[in-house]
Nucleic acid binder design. Structure first.
Length: 304
RNA sequence: GGAGGAGUAGCGAAGAGGCCAAACGCAGAUGACUGUAAAUCAUUUCCCACCGGGUUCGGCAGUUCAAAUCUGUCCUCCUCCA
């Protein structure tokens, strides 16, 4: 099986800088594992790696989407698998770096997404939660039991899955093995939450200084709200400011709070969905982080 | 010095005698997650506990079977007039 190294963890722990060092030490190339860094023009707010920080390491799947294009796990899965193939063929180690848990898992596990056209509209959007949930229950009760009635997106998607496949989501999942299709090592960076929150707040302030507002304004003007890119934290919060509904200070605070909650969700995901080998970064300097990572990776690397 | 107004859980803010451990929002905590995932959704947050119990609504003292809600007094803050 092909080897794949994953560097994951919550936002703002230092995945990017570690990834460069490991890529150089392990002769690797980096593949983006982050749902928002695929977009052009979204650099500051997504904390995307800067050109001069890449240090000669090749990066894949960054900056290839226009702002008005949508994006999804299925597309990501397909692209990443191609890249893993491509990098491996050069005899280099593919290193996935990112914090979007579902994307990482979907790419590396045998999640299957049906090849499909554009979204078919089944006219579910204007129905009430109760109505669509009742519909799902009648179609595919097994899946309905796993989704909360208020979770419209999931309920609707489950109905779509049923219509498109003639079989329910739960039954489809049963056909999968739920194991990785590569020889994967999950390396995670972790840090005390409170400490992380503090670093996040500082980083947000720094982003503002670097011109985040102008960047967001550009993105805002070249897309529209339902679009994927304007759902990014650090962007959507400023819509109210641009429309004169909230002060700038308030919006900046919202960015910080939303990022805190995002971190929380990321931890929940990583802790419960995949077996991450954690490096606790709290009292380590950057060299020590690299060393701890290499210690953990020893068997994975030598097991070639 | 005079006239008004306000003090409610970490913050904001409802409640104006029993249905109040106290709505709602925010922040915090926990969880779910297979095509929007930086998305979406659920649970939880005075204290101890399994039923249940113990302390709360600026302080103190009253009225009442019953007080966050009524009375007195004190403290703090705000606005206006001097």
């Amino acid at each position: 099986m092909q080897k794949v190294l994953v560097i994951c963890g919550p936002t703002c722990v230092g995945k990017t800088s570690l990834s460069i060092k490991l890529a150089k030490l392990l002769n690797g190339e980096i593949i983006n594992g982050d749902s928002m860094q695929v977009y052009k023009h979204m650099d500051i707010g997504t904390a995307k790696i800067k050109e001069n920080e890449k240090d000669g390491v090749i990066h894949h799947l960054f900056d290839f989407k226009e702002l008005d294009e949508s994006y999804s796990v299925a597309e990501y899965q397909k692209l990443v698998r191609e890249k893993i193939e491509e990098v491996s063929n050069k005899n280099k180690l593919p290193i996935l770096v990112g914090g979007t848990g579902l994307y990482l898992k979907a790419a590396l596990y045998d999640y299957s997404f049906k090849e499909k056209e554009d979204h078919v509209n089944y006219g579910l959007e204007d129905k009430s939660n109760e109505e669509i949930y009742a519909l799902l229950s009648s179609l595919d009760n097994k899946t309905a039991k796993t989704i909360h009635i208020n979770n419209r997106k999931r309920v609707i998607r489950a109905i779509e899955i049923y219509y498109e496949n003639g079989i329910g989501k739960e039954d489809i999942n049963k056909l999968q093995t739920h194991s990785p299709i590569y020889d994967v090592y999950y390396l995670g960076l972790r840090r005390d939450r409170k400490e992380l929150y503090k670093l996040i707040d500082e980083r947000v302030d720094q982003m503002i200084k670097e011109g985040l507002i102008n960047e967001v304004k550009y993105v805002y003007e070249h897309s529209s709200y339902p679009s994927t890119c304007m759902q990014a934290i650090g962007y959507k919060e400023f819509i109210d400011y641009f429309e004169g509904k909230a002060t700038l200070e308030y919006c900046i605070q919202r960015v910080k709070f939303n990022t805190h909650q995002y971190v929380k969700r990321q931890f929940t995901w990583f802790n419960h969905q995949i077996n991450v080998n954690w490096v606790d970064v709290d009292n380590l300097n950057s060299d020590e982080i690299v060393q701890s990572s290499l210690d953990l990776l020893k068997d994975f690397i030598n097991g070639k």
